[in-house]
């Protein structure tokens, strides 16, 4: 029995966790490949990732603000700070990260901006920012990973909920953010920026997909095992995996769609199908929907089983 009714953080927060994860994940992937391969040109993957990271984090902020009891109070979070609060530290990171994603978009779309006369006012800004491109990208890479992790730290501070209050959550959110971010940016790079589906960059992504997925599965198993073998509170929270609507969401959404979907599409079908555009998009959507289900599951099942 308590004074608040329902869950403190409803679905818009799950959507925010999802969007922030995709935003950070796609930038991590694109920038890591850029540094790893020593690229200096703007690749389709870079374009797709910078666009996704900016749009999704902007939408995520919208979710966050609309979930406040009074959205007009959002300025208070920007004015007052408390450094023992994960949220406050995250706000500082986001205040740097969001403008940086916009700057990366400017770098990525320089040619497109040049061709649109209405946007020519941006050109002097782009020229001004060009000398600091490398430091901007390095900072963006660090902050992108931090934003992914931050969404995990943010909710793992809720000590009342054993499923949420685990040390592994930030790692799980980084892994699932990177896998969904990679899926989103590779689909957009092929769909919008005419990247070849079998280019060397996308090959790297394909190869990285499976180790990341294994890491995700491992992290989820770690959470489940720590609950199953934990104290009474943890054991009652383990029910989240075995009974009720959230268990269905977990087994169908996270495991079925998110993990088995891409595995079956890639390994259980013939070579012609698994290399086709259909399989490419389908498995991408599976990865992204699986991640959304994971965020929903963690947030709702987590808040359902309180100590």
């Amino acid at each position: 029995m308590g004074l608040s009714e329902g869950v403190a953080w409803p679905w818009p927060i799950a959507v925010y966790l999802f969007l922030a994860g995709i935003s950070g994940g796609s930038l991590v992937v694109a920038l890591a490949i850029r540094f790893f391969k020593g690229q200096t040109e703007t690749t389709p993957l870079y374009k797709a990732a910078s666009l996704i990271s900016f749009v999704t984090i902007a939408l995520g902020m919208l979710c966050l603000v609309l979930d406040l009891t009074n959205p007009l109070f959002f300025w208070r979070i920007l004015v007052f700070y408390n450094f023992t609060s994960v949220m406050s530290v995250g706000v500082i990171a986001l205040c740097v990260y969001i403008p940086l994603t916009a700057v990366l978009c400017l770098y990525a779309f320089e040619d497109e901006i040049k061709s649109i006369p209405a946007l020519s006012f941006l050109l002097p800004i782009i020229n001004m920012l060009k000398p600091v491109r490398k430091p901007c990208e390095v900072t963006a890479l660090i902050l992108a990973a931090s934003v992914c992790a931050y969404t995990g730290f943010l909710i793992s501070a809720l000590i009342r909920f054993p499923l949420i209050n685990t040390a592994v959550l930030p790692a799980l959110f980084i892994a699932s953010g990177v896998s969904a971010g990679a899926a989103a940016s590779k689909m957009l790079s092929v769909f919008l920026f005419k990247e070849d589906m079998h280019s060397s960059e996308l090959k790297i992504l394909h190869g990285a997909e499976w180790p990341i997925m294994i890491a995700e599965i491992l992290f989820i198993c770690m959470i489940a095992m720590s609950l199953a073998t934990g104290n009474a509170g943890a054991q009652s929270a383990f029910e989240a995996f075995t009974a009720g609507v959230w268990a269905n969401l977990f087994w169908i959404g996270v495991v079925g769609v998110g993990f088995l979907g891409p595995i079956l599409l890639n390994f259980a079908t013939g070579k012609t199908f698994s290399h086709s555009a259909k399989a490419f998009y389908l498995s991408g959507f599976c990865a992204i929907s699986g991640m959304m289900c994971l965020r929903l599951f963690i947030l709702y099942a987590g808040q359902t089983y309180a100590i």
Binding site: L3, S4, A8, L68, F73, R76, I77, M87, F161
Partner: peptide, 26 residues
């Protein structure tokens, strides 16, 4: 006057003893 209505405190309270005042939204 400082509360932004994020409800972080409500989720963090181990006793579920905090709530949103519907009149003030904080």
């Amino acid at each position: 006057s400082k509360c932004a209505g994020c409800k972080y405190c409500i989720g963090a309270c181990p006793y579920n003893a905090r709530f949103i005042n519907e009149e003030t939204d904080v």
